[in-house]
Design a binder for these strands. Structure first.
Lengths: 106, 106
DNA sequence: AGTAAATAGTTTGTATTGCAAACCGGTCTG
DNA sequence: CAGACCGGTTTGCAATACAAACTATTTACT
């Protein structure tokens, strides 16, 4: 891939994943099987409201699944990446890598 | 740095640099002394309008300098990172790195 | 000479969206 | 049983990224 193509590709990076909060969410989730809402909130430092809306966005794009269940009497929300989601975040990091490398050795 | 801190930091990444188009611009510029408007446009694939406004934003933040001169009879616009800018993009990449790594080995 | 097209950008308008804050249904605590 | 806490969702607004329109000069064509 030429430099031009790499830079051009990065300039049109998928905003959905690239957005800082979601990049953090996706990356955090990619390292584990699953996590719950509160763990994710602690990890990212996001407010509940914003975490919630980011998760909904990722769910709509079918990059993660939101599983609600009961733990004792209260609801419990579990998040996990879909296969699609796992692939996307990997690919995204690869793109970032190649952008960085192409800048490194000129 | 703990995982929590890393993810939290990434969630609040500097949007100014992180935005795909500007990340491409900054990264491209970081690899050279300077570049002109058109080279940058070719590299990033951005339209003139958008490139222009991104550059202005980066200039306002003092991350790069826009030098206009005459080449023959027509104006010529040259871009180069400031010291500040050079530092910022480096730091940014380091942050991204540590985010990625912290996800890798869990 | 006149006009069309290219060069080198800037400005404007709009639709999107990220964030904070308000809200909501429950549960636990004194 | 009033208030605090838990686990979120919804709403409202301010910021902004992109496309499209615009400006101004220069070169090419006829």
């Amino acid at each position: 891939m030429s430099d031009r193509e790499i830079f051009e590709e990065i300039a049109t990076l998928e905003r959905l994943i690239h957005e800082p909060a979601r990049l953090a969410i996706m990356t955090a989730l990619s390292s584990v099987e699953e996590a719950d809402f509160l763990l994710l909130q602690r990890l990212t430092g996001l407010t509940k409201g914003n975490l919630s809306s980011h998760l909904t966005k990722l769910e709509n794009a079918e990059l993660l699944e939101i599983e609600k269940s009961f733990r004792g009497k209260r609801t419990h929300t579990n998040l996990k990446l879909t296969r699609k989601g796992r692939k996307r975040i990997e690919t995204h990091w690869k793109k970032l890598d190649s952008l960085r490398k192409s800048a490194g050795n000129k």
